[in-house]
Every structure is written in C-alpha cells, then in structure tokens.
C-alpha cells in the first residue's frame, strides 16, 4: 500500500518522463520543423517547378538543374562566395582570437571592453551596411577624409571591382570578430591556470606556450568558431546587399545575392530555389569536411 510495485512505478515514470520531455521540446520542435525543415523541403520541391511568382507553377522536373549547370553566373557567384569565405573566415578567426587573448586578463573595467567589442554583432546589419557605405564614400567618406590628412587620395572603395570585395569582407570581419571573441574567451578561461605556471617554470616563452599549449587546447572552440564562420560567410547577404548590391559588375555577387536577384528582382522562384539547393549542398559539404578533419585531431578533455 505504501509503496506500489517498483517495476510499475518505473514504467509509469518513464512514460511520464517521455511525455514531459516531448512537451518541453514541443516549442523548439515546432520551430525546427516549421522554420528550418519545412522551408528546406519546400525549396527542394520548388526547385522542380517553373514558377515566376505571378504565374501558375509548372512542374519541369530537373530542367532548372540542367540550366544551373550551364549557368556561368552561378559558378561565378560560387567563386565569389569562396573568395569572400577565404577572406572572412581566417580574418575573423585570427582577429577574434587575438582580441580574446587581449581581454583575457583581470583588469578593472575589462568587462566593459568586452561588451564594447560585441556591439557590432548586436547592431542591425542593414544599418551597419549603410554606415559603412558612408565611411567608404569616395568623396565625403570618413575613410578617405582620414587618408586625405596624410595627403593620400583614397580610392573609390566600393565601386572598384578589385577593392569592393575586400571592403565588404572587412566589414564582415569587423562585425563578427567581437562575437567570436566570446567563444575563444570562454575557451581560454577553461584552460587551467596551472598549465601556464608549469610551462613558464619549464622556461617556455609566452609565444611557445600559446602555440604548444593554448592553441591545441582551444581546438574544440576552434572547431565551433570555424564551422559557424564558414556557414555564416557562405550565407552572408545583408551588408553586401546594402553596400554594393553585388556590384560593381558582378564582383561581389555572392551566391545568396544571386538567389535574391533571381527570386525578388526577376521573380523566378523556381530557379532561385534551385540555386539555394546548390548552396545548401556546398555548405553541407564544407561543414562535413571540417568536422571530419577536426574529429581526428581534437581532444575535448584537458585532464587525463
């Protein structure tokens, strides 16, 4: 009477636990299914249709895909995207690691500095893009005014096919370095201080300590930062949209911009979906490659 059969309790308890678990998961499950999985499925389906938004969708099988493989603009945009990723990922990673090392010390007011560095990430990308367009403005922009002080006639940053990409990439790096710094900072603070003392007792220079101890122990953080950055750079859109609209020419026309162009300027939703599927595949491939590479080389435990 006082205690029911233990076996039954466990069963009821288990079922109840499962129900509670699902109940708690439900809100985020709805989010994942409704806003992540469903759009992916819809885009996959749409990529098989000829749909000009105002016209009736028409099933065309793989026609969009054969168009895709013959479309120079698409391959060009993938190269442009790759160029963007190649500048942004190392740039953001290195800068954020340096910033993390810089602010990883106990000084008065340090937490305000940390917060300050994260602000660019919290600002609206479109607003950032606008402000940076003004800074880069060849005539009256802050950057060229500044260069003018030293007698340098600054170039037209955003309308030069050569400089436009590095310029928009610089804004990306500036925008995300502070945010990524937070992860490195957390990673650094997980490394026991005793290791620092031990290595300095052994006469290791700070540089040697960094490369032989800190960096290897930061690998899990590095994995996370690199993967999220690669994905983030592949999907970059808003600042480019505001600053260059893919131009000059098509020098900053990254894949996401091409998708936007096809969907919302030319209203070819079917084909835009097809390019999205391609971009999805590319990002998936890049992410899996990174995972496999790091899996082999990462230790998650400091002790042992």
């Amino acid at each position: 009477m006082l205690r029911p059969a233990p076996r039954r309790t466990r069963q009821v308890g288990k079922a109840q636990q499962t129900a509670v678990a699902y109940a708690l998961l439900a809100p985020s499950l709805v989010g994942v299914l409704g806003f992540l999985l469903a759009p992916v499925v819809i885009v996959l389906v749409l990529s098989l249709f000829d749909w000009k938004l105002l016209s009736t969708p028409e099933f065309v099988g793989l026609a969009n895909y054969s168009r895709l493989f013959a479309d120079e603009d698409v391959w060009h945009s993938l190269l442009v995207t790759l160029y963007y990723v190649v500048i942004c990922v190392p740039g953001t990673t290195i800068l954020s690691l340096l910033l993390a090392l810089l602010v990883d010390r106990k000084l008065r007011g340090m937490k305000y500095f940390r917060a300050l560095l994260v602000i660019p990430w919290m600002a609206t990308p479109v607003a950032l893009g606008l402000v940076w367009s003004w800074i880069f403005d060849p005539g009256r922009g802050a950057l060229n005014q500044f260069l003018g002080v030293f007698g340098i006639d600054g170039p037209a940053w955003l309308s030069s096919p050569v400089l436009a990409m590095p310029s928009v990439a610089a804004v990306h790096i500036w925008q995300f370095a502070g945010y990524n710094m937070l992860f490195f900072l957390a990673g650094l603070q997980n490394i026991p201080r005793s290791l620092r003392e031990a290595s300095s007792l052994d006469g290791a220079s700070p540089v040697a300590h960094f490369f032989t101890i800190t960096l290897p122990l930061l690998r899990p953080t590095m994995l996370f930062v690199l993967i999220t950055n690669v994905i983030g750079s592949f999907q970059a859109f808003d600042t480019i949209f505001v600053m260059t609209e893919g131009g000059p020419g098509d020098s900053t026309e990254v894949a996401t911009y091409l998708i936007y162009d096809e969907a919302f300027r030319k209203f070819d939703f079917g084909y835009a979906s097809t390019i999205s599927v391609l971009l999805f595949a590319v990002v998936l491939f890049a992410t899996i490659t990174q995972f496999v590479y790091f899996e082999r080389r990462t230790t998650y435990e400091v002790s042992g």
């Binding site: 005539g139 037209a156 309308s159 260059t244 609209e245 893919g246 131009g247």
Partner: peptide, 17 residues
C-alpha cells in the same frame, strides 16, 4: 564605368557635386 556603373556608381551624385 568604374565610377558610374550601377549599382555602386555615383553618376547622379557627381552632377550634384
């Protein structure tokens, strides 16, 4: 065109200036 081509060009602004 390096200074005037859309979307980044500034042809109209050059007249204004």
């Amino acid at each position: 065109g390096t200074r005037t081509n859309p979307p980044t060009g500034q042809a109209t602004e050059m007249f204004y200036r």
